[in-house]
Each structure stands twice: as structure tokens, then as C-alpha cells.
């Protein structure tokens, strides 16, 4: 049975977690740029590492490493699949 979960922003994930994107709450150029980089619905994202100053955070998406600031990653919603 599948329970509908509350979507969680990517920025709330901790290092090592695996995340599946369900929704992008961004518009315009930033949305398009994220889509181009592979942040599309259904894509798996793993949280790699935070910058020494706490932000931005590096993510692994479609076999590449991309860093996003909290402003953007907090608008990428989805579910945690697993991981640490």
C-alpha cells in the first residue's frame, strides 16, 4: 500500500541521503537551468557535501556534481529514498 507522503525540500536532506525529485517550485531561468542540469521530476539526487561555511551544498545528479544554494535547493521538493 502506498501512503501519500508530505514532500520534503532537498535542502532539508542530510549528507548521504538519496532523494527523488517530485516537484520544482521555481520559475524562469533558474527552473530551466536546473532542468538542463538534470534536476527533473523523477531524477535521483544524492546529497554529497556542504561547503565549509554551511552553504551551498554539492549534489550528485545524473552522474555529475552540482552545487546549489539553499535558496534553490529549498524549492526542490521530493521524497527521501534512503541512505545515511
Amino acid at each position: 500500500m502506498h501512503l501519500s507522503k508530505v514532500l520534503k525540500p532537498l535542502s532539508d536532506c542530510s549528507t548521504g541521503e538519496l532523494f527523488v525529485i517530485q516537484e520544482l517550485k521555481l520559475e524562469g531561468v533558474m527552473r530551466r537551468r536546473l532542468l538542463d542540469l538534470g534536476f527533473v521530476k523523477g531524477a535521483e539526487v544524492s546529497v554529497l557535501q556542504r561547503s565549509p561555511l554551511g552553504d551551498p551544498t554539492a549534489f550528485r545528479v545524473s552522474d555529475t556534481t552540482v552545487a546549489l544554494r539553499h535558496e534553490e535547493s529549498s524549492k526542490i521538493l521530493g521524497e527521501v529514498l534512503g541512505g545515511a
Partner: peptide, 11 residues
């Protein structure tokens, strides 16, 4: 406001 930010970290 600081504009959008993405930064690729190549291997």
C-alpha cells in the same frame, strides 16, 4: 537580490 546560482564541480 543575489541571482540564481548553480555551480558544477567537475571530477
Amino acid at each position: 537580490v543575489p541571482s540564481h546560482y548553480t555551480l558544477e564541480l567537475p571530477p
